[in-house]
Simulated scan of single mutants.
Amino acid sequence: MTDLFAQPDDATPLDAEEREGLLQTWITTRADLNEAEQANIDEAVAWTERRRDVELLTEGFVFELHRRMFGDVWSWAGSTRKTGKNIGIDPVQIHVQLGGLLRDARYWIDHGSFPPDEIAVRLHHGLVAIHPFPNGNGRHARLMADLIIVQLGGAPFSWGGGTLRDIGTLRAEYIAALRAADQHDFAPLLAFARS
């Protein structure tokens, strides 16, 4: 299992207790883990397609979506992270900051504060910055953004048109765009989301 928990340097590392949350004993390599997580995510996407009229901007939905995306693979799926990570806020602030982000997004929608793409991308960035879960935050945030943009009448984002799991140019572009958004420049993340 040497490569099972190997991740790019900019990915969120799992601590020992979180690693013990792996539910599937057949998963022994990183490829197995990626396959299992993707199958679970595909099921979550199908679940969301059956619930088009649900209120997306609630903590309940945010946590249920993560559970649906990773709950067949990880015991902690849909649960707030308890430890500090290489990204994200202090765990004790997660619910406060998440509630504020969701209220902000609702305000942006209700008042047309930004174009729909920007609302979805700002929500995505906020979720990544908070990092509510032990892992899967980027994938979760991208799906949340896709759900919001569809609800607002737009098409889902392409997110560079490839997989962001592995080290490479695409992932580097995504991380650079997130860092620009950290500095309040959302143009690169908007461009990346539609590239």
Rank of each mutant, 00 (worst) to 15 (best):
P13K: 00
W159Y: 02
T83P: 00
E64A: 15
L98Q: 07
E35Q: 13
W108N: 00
L190E: 01
P132S: 01
G88R: 10
A193M: 12
P134N: 11
I27A: 12
L102N: 00
Q93N: 11
Y174Q: 04
D110K: 07
D42W: 09
F192V: 11
A181K: 09
G99F: 06
R142Q: 09
F5N: 02
H140Q: 13
K82F: 04
D104Q: 14
A46M: 13
A187R: 13
I41Y: 14
G136Q: 07
V150Y: 03
L101E: 12
P156R: 14
E64N: 11
T28Y: 03
A105E: 08
M69P: 02
I94Q: 07
E17F: 08
D15R: 01
E173I: 07
E118F: 03
D53M: 01
L164D: 02
L102M: 01
F5P: 03
A16M: 06
A176F: 00
A180S: 05
A120M: 10
L33F: 11
F186P: 07
V54Q: 14
D32N: 10
D15P: 00
G112S: 04
P91S: 12
G160Y: 12
R103H: 08
R142Y: 04
G138Y: 01
R50P: 05
V54C: 07
L23P: 02
I119V: 15
F192I: 09
V73C: 08
R165L: 10
I89K: 04
P115G: 11
A177Q: 00
S75V: 03
G88E: 09
L65I: 04
G161T: 05
Q93K: 12
F114V: 06
D9A: 09
F70D: 09
L147W: 06
F192T: 12
A6M: 02
E35T: 14
L65G: 09
D90N: 08
E49I: 01
L22Y: 11
H95G: 01
V121L: 08
L123W: 05
L23N: 01
L23C: 02
D90K: 05
E20D: 12
D32C: 04
P132R: 03
G154R: 07
P134T: 06
R142D: 06
A77N: 08
G21Q: 05
A39P: 00
L152N: 12
G138D: 01
L57N: 04
